[in-house]
Design a protein around this nucleic acid. Structure first.
Lengths: 147, 147
DNA sequence: TTTGTTTAGTTGCATAAACAACTATATGCC
DNA sequence: GGCATATAGTTGTTTATGCAACTAAACAAA
């Protein structure tokens, strides 16, 4: 018997990731309730810019696991919301450096608090040990499938 | 110190579910390589119909964690591909019963084999015990956030 | 310098998701 | 029966994804 065989019924839920879907929806709902008018996809870009401002679009692709067109359009929409700005790089004129506007920076504290709250809601009753193993498994899955 | 506190850097990956994204992409790629011309979203609907043919759209919503417009359009596209058909219910004329066509039924074996292969690729090196705990955690997360 | 290749980003197209507003049928209550 | 309400499904709009094709700049080799 193979080591990693799921039963059919379990396979589906695991693959479609209903848990991460549920977290995403809850996070979106919590943003909305707090009148933070951004999508979770936009949030995922801002999240990395809050850590390192001025990343290139390619760096944002790698950080967020998205392809270039997705980042192009997410940055388009974040620019429309006046949360980021595209600055042409002086060293390499192909590159856009994406920098936070003051409005974009301002969101950080509030958004991260909402994200932490959401995660605490999600993980009620789950022990640290279980979370550690779950994270390990997810990381291994990701590494197994990385291109 | 709260029990369930993620470190910032981990929070992001957990919420955005990069592992389940990666599985979805690999499954899509494997379908394409096998010349199965369906999306993973269409697959997720077919998957339930293979178990119970003739479900209503509302039942498909519940089974796939999607809202009604999403299922309306997925069924639209599956009908265009001639994999399913909408049959008006005789007991309740509001309901459409979604039934597989012969072409739709034919796909089952091949698709499920691809899905199982994909899952085995994803879970290489992960022990049964780890998988069990990961599933438990994901289920608890889902239950914590269920509406 | 020119030619070919790689890298960064954009655009077009099809599919899908979330939300709100809508139609039509069913049901419960008086 | 008649009216309010709930349920099943559709449509419109905005946002996002995945893929392919594209432009422009950088780089490397001759």
């Amino acid at each position: 018997m193979p080591n990693n065989q799921f039963k059919k019924g379990e396979l589906y839920s695991f693959i479609t990731g209903k848990a991460s879907t549920a977290i995403g929806r809850r996070l979106q709902k919590n943003f909305k309730q707090a009148e933070v008018e951004i999508t979770i996809e936009q949030w995922s870009v801002l999240y990395h810019l809050w850590k390192v401002d001025g990343m290139s679009q390619q760096q944002l692709c790698d950080a967020t696991f998205r392809d270039k067109p997705s980042i192009t359009r997410l940055v388009d929409n974040l620019e429309k919301l006046k949360l980021v700005k595209r600055n042409a790089s002086k060293e390499d004129r192909r590159k856009n450096l994406i920098v936070l506007t003051p409005e974009g920076k301002e969101l950080e504290e509030h958004c991260m608090a909402i994200a932490n709250t959401t995660l605490n809601e999600a993980l009620q009753g789950v022990t640290n040990g279980q979370v550690e193993i779950a994270k390990e498994v997810l990381q291994m899955v990701y590494d197994n499938l990385a291109p």
